[in-house]
Each structure stands twice: as C-alpha cells, then as structure tokens.
C-alpha cells in the first residue's frame, strides 16, 4: 500500500520550505498542485509568461538555451529538492531559458500569480520568499561562476 503524502507534508520536509511558518506553508500548499513531465517534455520555454515555479520532487530537469547552429545548450541541470524558476518573482515575468525534463520528473507547480498577490498583501510572506529565492539564486550564481572559469580547460 503506497503512502501518499499531502502537499503540506511534502513542503514541511523540503529544504526550501522547511523553516517557513506552518500557516504560510498551509497556504502555499493550497496554491500548489502535483505535475508530471515525461522525458523530453518542456516544463516551460524561453519567452513564455512566468506565473509558476516548480519544486522538483523526483527527476532531472535541464535548463537550456537554444543557440542557432548549436541547438539547445544545457547550462545546468537540477534535480530532486531543487526549485526551478524565479522569473515569476521578478518583472518582467518572462522565462529567460527553457526548462526541459531529462527523465520522468514529478514536481509541485505553484501558482505564482496567487502567491505574488499574497506577498503584496503580506510583506512578511514576501520577505520569506525573497530570502529563500535569494539563497537559491546565490548558489546558482556561484556555481555558474565556477563553470564560467572553465577550470578544466587546457591552459
């Protein structure tokens, strides 16, 4: 008999939402829904309006940019426990890259519009979100910098 977790339980266990006020977590769970992406399926594409962010439960997603003559170039991959998408939080709310599932990926999709308006009303909630997203973006930026250094290149 397979045990299914409620979204709230999931959020409580995830690194991203763990220390959040339980009331907020409950509210967020209400804005989320389970989604599944098949291998090769796009989570979102560059240019699309960004009104959702995803928390990956299980799977692997490639963040890609299509380069003429080279096709889609993967810049980074993310997986279990990672959050994908920050454009929903930052104007002009347009996706800056493609996110494509590399394998069967289960995720929770959060209604960004709903959460954004709640953040406007409750600045404390807004602060909590920005704190967490700042951490994610800082870690991604840091990792990107190391990638940019091309450390393994032949000098």
């Amino acid at each position: 008999m397979m045990e299914t977790k409620t979204l709230e339980q999931l959020l409580a266990e995830s690194d991203f939402f763990r220390d959040l006020d339980p009331a907020y977590r409950q509210m967020l769970a209400g804005c989320g829904r389970n989604v599944v992406f098949k291998p090769g399926e796009y989570m979102f594409q560059e240019g699309e309006p960004a009104h959702e962010f995803h928390l990956i439960r299980k799977g692997k997603v490639a963040l890609q940019i299509k380069v003429p003559g080279r096709g889609p170039v993967t810049l980074q991959t993310v997986q279990d426990g990672d959050v994908v998408g920050w454009a929903w939080l930052v104007p002009p709310h347009k996706r800056q890259y493609d996110a494509r599932a590399l394998e069967l990926t289960r995720a929770v999709a959060f209604d960004g519009l709903c959460i954004r308006s709640k953040c406007e009303q409750d600045p404390k909630l807004g602060y909590e979100f920005f704190k967490r997203f700042a951490l994610v973006m800082a870690a991604r930026l840091s990792a990107m910098r190391l990638q940019l250094l091309d450390l393994y290149a032949n000098p």
């Binding site: 692997k60 170039v73 993967t74 810049l75 991959t77 997986q79 394998e103 190391l146 990638q147 393994y152």
Partner: peptide, 15 residues
C-alpha cells in the same frame, strides 16, 4: 561544465 547535445546527465560544477 558544458554539455553536448544529447547529454542527459548532470550539467553544473562538481560542487
């Protein structure tokens, strides 16, 4: 650090 097309493994620094 850098994938080729068709690579379905991880992309990103080892850290």
């Amino acid at each position: 650090d850098r994938a080729m097309s068709g690579w379905r493994g991880n992309v990103g620094v080892v850290t």
